[in-house]
């Protein structure tokens, strides 16, 4: 464990806490894409199946369980909470997530380290995570009114994978057997998807204004 990885994990954790805070404190999920949240839940389920058969560390297991629990908690609020669900931008959040899930699954069947069920699902989760933010970005472009918590949520989520890239470089040079091409390339694509967002996020932050994405 290095500082880049730990900071990345904490940003990931905080991004989720920011959403839960927004939902619980304001009783509103306006601006949050349920599609993206459901894709992340699918990512976590497929990747953390290894909770059942392998143990890395207490830290690792606790984080995995936390990510799973919070992902489903967010979905539960957005779908079933009487007050919160009325604030969901149902008409705007129309991204067809089949267009992401299907290609990622086919790619995982074709490009993986080992053709076993858990390995293919794990690989699928890596591919899907790379693009899972797209419905959220599309929703933010459609709804011109982006609140600060939503903007910070996406920024934390983008920052997390960017720090993982630094962590991978560090590990490559410090650990003998460390090579993970699938994760590296996916992580680079995942971070690149945020480039545009970060550009406008920085501008808004510098000028102390509310974030606005050009339509």
């Amino acid at each position: 464990m290095n500082l880049f990885r730990l900071t990345g994990d904490m940003m990931h954790l905080f991004s989720i806490l920011v959403i839960l805070l927004k939902i619980r404190a304001t009783k509103s999920c306006r601006g949050i894409s349920l599609k993206t949240q459901e894709l992340y839940a699918l990512v976590f389920v497929c990747r953390y199946l290894d909770l059942l058969y392998s143990f890395v560390s207490v830290y690792n297991s606790v984080m995995k369980v936390t990510f799973l629990a919070t992902a489903f908690s967010i979905i539960r609020y957005m779908r079933y909470d009487k007050v919160v669900r009325q604030t969901y931008d149902r008409e705007q959040d129309t991204f067809r997530y089949g267009f992401l899930v299907a290609p990622c699954f086919v790619l995982a069947l074709l490009i993986n380290h080992k053709f076993t069920l858990t390995e293919v699902l794990w690989t699928f989760s890596i591919y899907l995570e790379a693009v899972a933010i797209l419905p959220q970005l599309v929703l933010m472009q459609r709804t011109q009114n982006i609140d600060n918590l939503t903007a910070h949520y996406v920024a934390l989520l983008g920052g997390y994978r960017a720090l993982y890239i630094v962590n991978w470089v560090y590990r490559y040079f410090t650990e003998r057997h460390y090579k993970q091409w699938i994760v590296w390339i996916s992580g680079l694509i995942q971070t690149a998807i945020y480039a545009d967002f970060f550009y406008f996020y920085t501008i808004a932050w510098k000028s102390n204004k509310r974030l606005q994405l050009p339509a």
Partner: peptide
């Protein structure tokens, strides 16, 4: 095997 050893990220 080496891939397994390094699969410790989240």
């Amino acid at each position: 095997k080496e891939e397994e050893e390094t699969k410790d990220e989240l």
